[in-house]
Computed example of a mutant assay.
Amino acid sequence: MTSTLQRGTAAPDDLLYFTDPARAAIDCALLAYTAPLLATLPRGDHHPVLVLPRLNGTDTSTATLHTVLRGLGYRTYGWRLGRNIGPTSKAVHGMRARLDYLTNRYQQPVTLIGWSLGGIYARQLARRTPQAVRQVITLGSPIRLARHDQSRANHLFHRHSHQHIEPLDLPLERGAGPLPVPATSIYTPLDGIVAWRTCLDEPGPRTENIAVLASHLGIASHPAALWAVADRLAQPADRWTPFQPPSLLRMAYPAPESRSS
């Protein structure tokens, strides 16, 4: 798959890129129309959840996700590290400290949810401290980015590279194998920021890719993505099964792309 990404997968075209902010507003507006359906979201055991924001995002950017998950009873936390400008010393050490704090406080593993760059961080944390992580859920995260030109956010990321202490070597996760914990990648083929095929995880007994028809900037507020997140969180810790869309929402989930495509 890495060779496929290197050869033929470019960043989103201008139409997807320039319309992504407007489509994100529509994604958020859909919440108002689907409120009765969201009231029936799957509910789990209220375990702790740590949410990591996208590039240039803060905890405010994930406010909708926090609100929904707290409404379901989860002990949901932001990273409390300000704006995400990349793997700075503050971000790298702060995320590790935040995860340590939550595992010590609750004496159980934490689910990590990461949006875009935040998802790359989440997977790194899971590899370093798998005993502290219950599962990883990523939203529009280019976890298999192979080239800088596969992301429209490349220049924004490198604007702060002089402050980064852990450069993201490409291809990401080359030869790393599957995560040691369950992993779900929620992605969108309508992504206007990153090449969507870079979001596809390797197949495995506890990994999956879930497609939704959202924008990159709105995926963390899109009803179909929120349902998938809630469904994954509701699984018992010792029993992981692949995602099955509810019958009323089946059309909201296109068939997931395989890693061989």
Rank of each mutant, 00 (worst) to 15 (best):
Phe243Asp: 14
Val51Ser: 06
Leu200Thr: 03
Pro256Thr: 03
Ser89Gly: 10
Arg105Trp: 01
His158Pro: 07
Thr64His: 03
Thr184Tyr: 12
Cys199Leu: 02
Ala122Asp: 10
His66Val: 04
Ala91Gln: 14
Pro21Phe: 00
Tyr253Gln: 10
Thr62Val: 15
Thr184Met: 15
His158Asn: 15
Thr58His: 05
Asp20Cys: 09
Arg134Gly: 00
Tyr121Val: 05
Leu172Tyr: 05
Arg98Pro: 03
Ala230Thr: 08
Gly114Arg: 05
Arg147Trp: 01
Trp240Cys: 07
Glu173Arg: 04
Cys199Trp: 04
Ala252Lys: 09
Gly118Tyr: 02
Ala122Cys: 08
Leu72Ser: 04
Arg75Gln: 13
Ser261Glu: 13
Ala228Gln: 07
Gln107Gly: 14
Gly118Arg: 02
Asp149Ala: 07
Gln124His: 09
Asp45Gly: 05
His46Ala: 15
Val51Cys: 13
Ser3Pro: 00
Ile193Ser: 12
Thr67Trp: 12
Val49Pro: 11
Leu81His: 03
Pro109Tyr: 09
Gly71Thr: 00
His160Lys: 08
Ala25Tyr: 03
Thr2Lys: 04
Ala228Glu: 07
Arg83Pro: 02
Ala230Ile: 07
Arg123Trp: 04
Arg144Ile: 02
Val212Met: 00
Arg7His: 00
Phe18Met: 12
Ile165Arg: 02
Ala220Ile: 03
Arg105Pro: 00
Asn209Leu: 02
Pro203Asp: 09
Arg75Met: 05
Ala224Pro: 12
Gln244Pro: 01
Ala183Glu: 15
Ala211Phe: 04
Gly73Pro: 06
Gln6Trp: 08
Thr207Met: 08
Pro205Glu: 08
Leu99His: 01
Thr2Ile: 14
Ser61Ile: 01
Arg23Trp: 11
Arg127Leu: 04
Pro256Ser: 02
Ser215Phe: 03
Leu69Asn: 00
Pro12Trp: 08
Leu117His: 14
Ile120Thr: 06
Leu69Val: 06
